[in-house]
Simulated assay, not measured.
Amino acid sequence: METLHTFTGSTQDEIWQKVAYDMASQKELLSYSALVQLNDTQIYFDTDLDLGGGFEGGISSTNFMAPVPENVSLRFSLHEQGWMDEVGKFFGMEDVELGYPDIDEAFIIKTNQPDTLKQLLSDPTVHQLLLNHKSCELKLHDDADDSGHETVLTFSKDEAILNIAELREIYDMLYRLLQQLRQLV
């Protein structure tokens, strides 16, 4: 079972110095899971790198997950737009246009509240980070597991991101989005 490393602090700088030190001290960084807690905001992340062997090609991934206040009614999903999506749109697949040409072109967007999502993605830092990670999936959705039902904000990418600066940028984007979502309640 993977060890969950937990980090708390009074500032993001303090926390991410701890994360960087801990990740650097790992002998082989093939998988890493952490909970980063700043004030009342918890964001989990994990990276996984399986090199495969023999004829296997290996897989890698990075996932972030953060619980969202229960009262938030917004739901959305953004994922990279590919040729299959173009076919799907031809047959009526949902793809909301937010009015940000670069975002609208890069992602298939599904949401129950287009105007709210447009406002949420208006932050230039969030906007640019999404464009830097076009192959990601960003979702605000309901999740259920053994402990019950909760609403979560997730970021996932089929790439093991091990660069601390990149991990922190993604964390910062999610932290910003969570702060904005709390204002919606």
Rank of each mutant, 00 (worst) to 15 (best):
V126Q: 05
G52V: 05
N112F: 03
S60L: 04
L181R: 01
D50I: 03
L130E: 09
H5E: 15
A106F: 08
L51V: 08
S25V: 03
T3E: 12
L120Q: 14
F55A: 06
G58H: 07
F45I: 00
V36M: 09
V19P: 07
R182D: 12
E166P: 10
M93L: 14
E56A: 12
Q37V: 09
Q12M: 13
F7K: 06
M1N: 11
L131Q: 13
D102L: 04
S77G: 04
P114M: 01
W83P: 12
Q183E: 10
D13T: 14
T116W: 07
A106D: 03
D158Y: 06
T62F: 14
A24D: 13
E97V: 01
T3P: 04
K118F: 09
N132S: 05
M173C: 05
L140T: 00
I15A: 01
D13L: 10
T3D: 07
T8F: 04
V152L: 08
S122T: 01
Q17R: 14
I59M: 15
N112W: 02
V68S: 03
S73C: 12
T62K: 04
G58W: 01
K134E: 11
G57H: 15
E80S: 10
Q81Y: 07
V152W: 02
F91N: 13
T3A: 05
M23P: 09
M93D: 15
G88I: 03
T11V: 05
P67E: 15
T11I: 04
L49D: 12
K18F: 09
D123C: 00
P114K: 00
G92M: 06
Q26F: 03
N112P: 12
